[in-house]
Design a protein around this nucleic acid. Structure first.
Lengths: 100, 100
DNA sequence: CAAACCGGTTTGTAATACAAACTTGTTTAT
DNA sequence: ATAAACAAGTTTGTATTACAAACCGGTTTG
């Protein structure tokens, strides 16, 4: 058992492609609303919703609900913990893939 | 819906950390038996077995059973298709992570 | 005022990853 | 001899999932 298990411990919250995409967008965008993310990711509303909920539950994403006129709006942003987690994930994956 | 969905289509067979580790080892090792992989990955025998079966079912890994003396031996190697899939995966992930 | 639309959330289901139990045979003690 | 431990895997049981589809409360349109 060598020192190559780090990859076995990658953060599954972020490793999931749909969420990796969401987090990557939020990492650069600072803030994004539901419809923007919907458009950028191409996910269905249902799946975007559940992935955001999971990211929120992990403490990685902050979700604020408001209204723009009469229309509800959901604003999402990465928390500091989410940024950290993303950076760590990226480092882990890059390092691992460099081995070959 | 921009051109950033490729990440949503990564090969799930390879994306799974345990299998990514197995495939990475096989990519450089050419051939490896069950016990070697067991040792290198730190997986349990049960999980190593099922992941190998899944990789075999995907056509990514070739499994040959033989005996060394009276003891059974399972030799694993990447198929050409498995090598391709791994290279493609690596390219996809690297490219995606470069965006930030 | 009914039907379609918006911006989401909830639910149903099939696929999974892992742990634990099992299997088939071999070696070691007693 | 034969029971107990060991070796090399495989199978099974379970809890978690990711996705699709249905739903929902409000708003606009015909």
């Amino acid at each position: 058992m060598k020192d190559n298990q780090p990859i076995l411990e990658v953060d599954r919250i972020i490793h999931e492609p749909a969420r990796l995409l969401i987090v990557t967008i939020l990492y650069t965008a600072e803030k994004a609303d539901f419809l923007f993310l919907l458009n950028e990711t191409g996910l269905t509303r249902g799946n975007l919703s559940t992935h955001l909920t999971k990211l929120e539950a992990a403490g990685y994403v902050n979700i604020e609900k408001s209204f723009r006129g009469k229309i509800p709006q959901t604003l999402c942003s990465l928390t500091p913990s989410g940024q950290e987690a993303f950076e760590k994930y990226r480092k882990q994956i890059n390092q691992f893939l460099k081995r070959t």
